[in-house]
Computed example of a mutant assay.
Amino acid sequence: MFNNLKLGVKLNLLLAAILLLLMITIGATLSIVIQGYAEEVVTEKALLLIETMNSVRNYTSTQVNPELASRLETEELFLPQTVPAYSSREVFEYLRNSDRYRNFFYKEATLNPTNLRDKADSFEAEIINSFRNDSQQQQQGFRNIPGGEIFYIARPLSVTKESCLRCHGSPEEAPASLLATYGTDNGFGWKLNEIVGAQVISVPASQVLEDARRLRLLVVGKILIFLVLAVVLLNVFLKFVITNPINEMSHLSKKLSMGDLDVEFEQKSNDEIGILAASLNRLKASLKIAMEMLDSK
């Protein structure tokens, strides 16, 4: 069936197959590249915020806590400002007051926290237990929540200083203000070097990923338009440079075969089509000479 098609149709089928292959290849490549770029963007946002929170923790631990530690025994209520986890969480909540960061979340999720707002949910508890079971220092990935898709980064939190056990060792050794504020049921029994929680930061990824998908469609669409235009121009070129001259020579060859020796194959170029026209003209001249020789006998 393919052999019965005209040359123009065959060429267009070939171009269509090439175009389809190019679009599949370009689409797949763009999908990988743009998806990778989108993930890099949200990862950079998350890393910047988590390092900022670590700076707040260090500031609280090295400058705020030493100034207020002595008051923990004399105050009626506990001073949470001495706790790095509290300070970082409060700073982040101020950040979330901005519309730009309203859907960003930060939590120092703990299995057995003093403040129950830091209690790990099932997803966070799974992360903490995975940190306990192996030596990895970071987990990251995407997860779906009712508000859309988010990207999270989690790092283990462990008891690295003996001073932490003052508030989290046993209730008998804890400051009176801590017991007065939070009671004796939660946040005790921690051990030195034990992983007790995870520092989790979540940034919205839905918009970034959607922008990446739109960009991919836009780029693919523009490339498709360019390729279709190239196919149209190529078809015009083939029509005037190859198809039309061949059709004309085919028509003249038919007339020549029927005895019309006045036909002239027009040679407009020196390419393969021009060489074919010159050959047909020589063939016509030879045929004319042969016919004249036959008539003279």
Rank of each mutant, 00 (worst) to 15 (best):
P171Y: 01
L233I: 05
T62F: 11
F104R: 02
I32F: 14
L261Y: 11
I34D: 00
L116F: 02
A290D: 13
D271R: 00
A17E: 02
L179M: 04
N235K: 04
Q137G: 15
V220G: 04
I50P: 00
N112H: 08
G27A: 08
I127G: 06
V231H: 03
L209Q: 07
V241I: 04
L294G: 15
D121E: 10
L47C: 01
G169N: 01
A17Q: 01
G8P: 06
A16V: 05
A205P: 09
R71N: 11
L22K: 05
A46E: 09
E93I: 09
Y101W: 07
L13C: 10
E51T: 12
P113H: 11
A109F: 06
F131S: 02
G187A: 05
C164W: 01
L15Q: 09
E40A: 15
L68I: 13
V159T: 06
K107F: 02
D262N: 14
E266S: 13
N115T: 02
L157P: 00
L192D: 08
T25V: 12
Y106F: 13
M258V: 00
S202P: 08
T43R: 12
L79E: 04
N244Q: 13
R57T: 02
F237Y: 14
K268C: 08
K268H: 12
M249F: 10
D260N: 13
L178G: 05
P156F: 07
L95A: 05
D295G: 14
S170D: 10
G197C: 07
E172P: 09
K288Q: 09
V232M: 08
T114I: 15
Q267G: 02
T43G: 03
A180L: 00
T160L: 13
A69E: 11
L21V: 11
A154T: 03
E149Y: 08
A120L: 04
Y37N: 12
P113I: 11
L234M: 10
G221M: 00
I34H: 03
Q199E: 12
E93D: 10
K161H: 11
A278S: 10
N144P: 05
A154H: 03
I201A: 02
L49C: 02
N144D: 15
N112E: 03
S98L: 06
L19I: 07
L192R: 04
D185Y: 00
V91R: 01
F226C: 10
P66M: 05
Q199T: 09
M23E: 10
T29V: 11
I289L: 11
S177M: 03
R132C: 03
F2L: 12
L72I: 10
S177L: 07
M291V: 13
G189A: 05
Y94E: 11
R155Y: 01
V263L: 04
N133Q: 15
E108K: 08
E173S: 15
V196W: 07
E162M: 14
P204F: 00
N193P: 01
T60W: 00
F265H: 03
E67S: 07
S269Y: 06
K284W: 01
P204G: 03
